[in-house]
Design a protein around this nucleic acid. Structure first.
Lengths: 329, 329
DNA sequence: ACGCAGCGTGTAACCGGTTACATGTCTTAA
DNA sequence: TTAAGACATGTAACCGGTTACACGCTGCGT
């Protein structure tokens, strides 16, 4: 038994395909008799419209492409959760595609979106502007996530890293810390750069404050290694700001193993507010990732549906959360 | 400038659409001259094939639907990560759809998959068999995840909850624990039921062992509450097995607050091995969720591509991980 | 010289919907 | 009584690909 088509429904209901289509799409110029007969035929045949056919003739898919660099961890699940909320509310599905760093595949993945989606949310931190422009499928509205970009060709929505890092700096300064370590993220990463830069700028405004920056790669291990290395070299410091929570957690472990008291001897702060941060009492910057996804997707769907504002760059706000790793024990 | 179609390419290359199609699909009966001219025209026009059109005529979409009950947390991101790995390897995209508990929408979400996907991975723990059968789109291969089901109509792949719970029971018995608490998951949940049942069965084989089961809802709070209540009622116990890690973590907190030593006074074990379990030294059952996703999707794609084995039920293995919450302090 | 196979190419039907336009029927006003 | 309009319905073109089949050409064997 092959799948029923609209023509099967039409002949069974003894009406034309046009009438069936009208009934199915809630068009009003249909007699109630026709409506009933079509409904009956649909039910009897278990008919379900064929999405590809509809997409082809309407040039609308009601799907949104989501292209992310890596599909793991809290960040990913949160952003998708936010998008899903908006998508299902507004009748869209999400087409997921990871953009692996070995990017030839990524390129084709992006192009493969033509005819599949009405728009796309793209996060491609490691792609340069030119590469991006060359890769993006033409004619598909795009919202760029956390990707500095472009001559205003696409909408962009990104975290307010600068505000977060500045808030941490002010907090540490207010605590009177003078010898501050920053464990930065990977050099190519734009978020990491912004955090490091804003932090350094604000710390530099303190009196007699010394800042040392070391490099990490966002992994817990790299945070632990960085602090362990500092301890071995007898570097003196009374505060650590890691560019993300994972590294901050690594730092906490290294400090605990070395017997350094947190926060008395060393205050520690991170960025992201992952769930574990709360359990460990880690001061951090809360990033409402799900909201970012919601907001970005709403905007994209507006654009897709023609209700769109012109492309704009938006900064998504963040929030300092003070916990015991910098406050009283 | 509208998007270029295959006919634009054909006329520009001065060949027929059939030839263009043949070149694009790597069909070999094409002269090298034709091949070059088509390639040139494609490049000049920036032509990208239209996926919906191709899907319609080939009856293949190269997409797989992923229908999950809720899109958050570690479980979700892990399972999607596993699926994505397989999908991108084999040239598929994932179409994501959450199945909200208020399920009228869910039903339509499932049906909306027709013509959009070649197959679907469905996880619908709260749907009954009949409901499921009525909801699933006909003619689309399905793999059910963690959903006990059916008269063998679809493939099923689920966690070996029984093995995990049994292993925990044996571990606790080997430690000589005699008064054991089980904090169960929500009553309607199949995983929770299997864990509770297998655990009870194995514990009953111990000598002089008393098992008390209390109910939770998989949340950390419910674990904490459950243990707090037991302590208040002066129930004596020397081991707690929670049906998931979240509740086990709650249990740990309640015990710490009451000053009970873990593991000396009370051994605690969970299920899932979420990242936090490692940090807290929680003994648990490791579930390789990403692998489950990989495995399930591989099987589904095999079926889609005709290389499929008949529907079967598979149990995905799990692994006991002993940490300090039951071992030496 | 002829037939036939093999190869490259083009024509047109088809996938399953939507929808502009034509058609037919009934009502209503002149 | 009849022309005009409103309304429900049907016919067929179209969306952009794929592909069965037909066709024309070349080279071979007899």
């Amino acid at each position: 038994m092959a799948e029923a088509t609209i023509r099967d429904v039409a002949s069974r209901a003894q009406v034309s395909v046009a009438s069936v289509s009208r009934v199915l799409n809630g068009f009003d110029k249909v007699s109630s008799q026709t409506r009933e007969r079509v409904a009956a035929a649909v039910a009897e045949l278990g008919y379900v419209p064929h999405a590809a056919a509809r997409s082809l003739s309407m040039a609308r898919t009601h799907s949104i492409g989501v292209v992310l660099p890596d599909l793991h961890g809290e960040f990913f699940s949160e952003i998708v959760r936010g998008m899903d909320r908006v998508a299902s509310e507004r009748g869209y599905l999400l087409l997921l595609s990871s953009l692996h760093a070995g990017s030839r595949l990524g390129t084709s993945a992006l192009r493969a979106l033509r005819g599949r989606v009405d728009g796309a949310m793209v996060m491609a931190p490691h792609l340069g502007e030119e590469e991006l422009a060359a890769t993006l499928p033409p004619g598909v509205p795009i919202v760029l996530l956390n990707t500095r970009s472009q001559q205003g060709l696409h909408s962009t929505i990104s975290l307010d890293n600068a505000a977060g890092a500045t808030a941490v700096a002010e907090h540490l300064l207010a605590l009177g810390r003078k010898r501050v370590i920053h464990i930065a993220g990977p050099p190519g990463n734009a978020d990491a750069q912004e955090r490091a830069q804003a932090f350094a700028r604000r710390v530099a405004q303190g009196d007699d404050v010394v800042l040392t920056a070391v490099e990490g790669d966002f992994s817990e291990q790299s945070g632990e290694d960085a602090v362990a290395a500092l301890l071995r070299s007898h570097q003196r410091f009374d505060a650590v700001f890691a560019a993300n929570d994972n590294m901050a957690i690594g730092a906490l472990q290294a400090l605990r193993q070395a017997g350094r008291q947190v926060p008395e001897a060393v205050a520690v702060a991170g960025f992201d507010d992952i769930p574990m941060a709360r359990h460990l009492g880690l001061t951090t910057v809360r990033v409402r990732i799900a909201e970012l996804g919601e907001y970005g997707l709403s905007e994209l769907i507006d654009t897709v549906e023609g209700r769109g504002a012109p492309p704009a760059s938006t900064l998504h706000p963040v929030e300092l959360v003070v916990r015991t790793s910098t406050g009283q024990a």
